[in-house]
């Protein structure tokens, strides 16, 4: 079957099977920053933004995304111009193995769009669905708070 959607700002029409989830199709189309960690919605590694809302792409059939806008980590920042959220994760050394990082960065982006001045509790809640065995979450929580400050500073 065929689904038409917007991915990182570009309109695409993708052929896929009815049983395929968005994670599989994104990865097949080359967007490999979306990671497979559990395929049950519990780990956050496959998170993408669907119409701006964070969702686990392993629980979204590709067909369900027809007519919607998807943002993946490939749509956030570049080597030349990293997003302030990415800069915050770098400077906090909040990245160890990096498998959870794309999901955490996207979750932070969704959080800051709604809550530009998050509390520490907001930062923890934002990362609650993102499992990470490396960092113990301490530095990622700091990174989310620092990202908020950087985004605020950039907006002014």
């Amino acid at each position: 079957m065929r689904s038409e959607l917007e991915v990182n700002g570009a309109r695409v029409a993708w052929e896929h099977e009815p049983h395929e989830f968005l994670t599989e199709v994104l990865r097949r189309e080359g967007l490999k920053g979306t990671k497979r960690g559990c395929e049950s919605g519990d780990c956050g590694a496959c998170a993408v933004l669907l119409d701006g809302e964070e969702v686990p792409s392993c629980l979204v059939l590709a067909a369900q995304a027809h007519g919607h806008a998807v943002e993946t980590i490939e749509g956030v920042g570049s080597f030349e111009a990293p997003h302030p959220i990415q800069e915050a994760f770098l400077d906090a050394t909040a990245i160890q193995c990096g498998y959870c990082t794309p999901g955490m960065v996207l979750a932070t982006k969704a959080l800051l769009a709604e809550t530009p001045n998050p509390t520490e509790a907001d930062a923890r809640a934002c990362l609650a669905g993102h499992l990470c065995r490396c960092t113990g979450y301490v530095k990622p929580i700091q990174a989310v708070l620092s990202a908020a400050q950087r985004c605020q500073a950039g907006a002014q």
């Binding site: 686990p56 629980l59 809640a125 609650a128």
Partner: peptide, 9 residues
Amino acid sequence: YPVVGLLNR
């Protein structure tokens, strides 16, 4: 069950 992605879906 405070997982943002699941609460959205």
